[in-house]
Amino acid sequence: MDRRPNDAARPPVAGLRALTARLGGAGLCRLVGDLDLDTAPVARAALARTLALPCMLLCVDLRDVPFCSCAGPNLLLAARTTTRRTGRTLVLLAPGTSVLRLLRVSGTAGLFAVHPDLRHAVRAFRRRVAAARPAGPRRTAPQVGRGPGPWPGA
């Protein structure tokens, strides 16, 4: 008797679930499950939905991605290219050790800002935007009796 399991008895391939939303002024794409060549279309569609949101900050939450193949960095790099082309920012939220290791090995880790959660990402983004604003003319009160000039106290 053949003891090898047939295809019908094998468990289904782990899938990837994706959620997209606009929260706190940021676009959020949360991925849950393994990110590989089989599940890349699900991630690609979710990233496309997130990129369509009218937000300057786009966050990809990877905290629930236990496995990531080379498909992951490829998708993230494509999304990053799109956001940069449109003047927006893409950040990663809480990537696990396997995702971080793959980004380091592929030489792409330095291309992504990483934050522990959405709140920290939004706060950092707002600080960066505020720091980039050009400083307007400084209004100072006139200093009576100080400074150069022929007046007393100068």
Rank of each mutant, 00 (worst) to 15 (best):
R3G: 04
R3C: 04
R3E: 13
P5Y: 05
N6I: 06
D7W: 10
A8M: 02
R10T: 02
P12A: 15
G15I: 01
G15E: 14
G15D: 13
L16M: 09
A18Y: 11
A18P: 12
A18K: 06
A18F: 07
L19H: 15
T20K: 06
T20G: 05
T20F: 06
R22I: 11
G25K: 11
G27I: 01
L28V: 15
L28T: 01
R30C: 10
R30Q: 14
R30M: 08
R30S: 14
D34S: 14
L35G: 02
L35E: 03
T39V: 03
P41S: 02
P41Q: 04
V42A: 09
A43V: 02
R44S: 15
A45H: 07
A45R: 14
A46N: 08
L57D: 09
L57T: 09
L58F: 01
C59V: 15
C59T: 09
V60Q: 06
D61Y: 10
L62C: 09
L62Y: 10
L62S: 08
R63S: 15
V65R: 09
F67Q: 11
F67G: 03
S69R: 09
P73T: 12
P73L: 13
L75E: 11
L76C: 03
L76F: 14
L77K: 04
L77M: 15
T82W: 01
T82F: 00
R85Q: 13
G87P: 07
L90D: 04
L93P: 10
P95D: 05
P95E: 03
R101N: 10
V105P: 03
T108Y: 08
L111T: 00
L111K: 07
A113N: 11
A113L: 11
V114T: 13
H115R: 08
P116T: 06
D117P: 11
R119Y: 04
H120N: 06
R123C: 08
A124E: 07
F125M: 04
R126H: 14
A130M: 05
A131E: 15
P134S: 12
P134H: 14
P134L: 13
P137S: 11
T140Y: 05
T140F: 06
A141F: 06
A141G: 02
P142N: 10
R146I: 02
R146T: 12
G147R: 10
G147M: 11
G147P: 10
P152T: 07
P152K: 06
A154N: 08
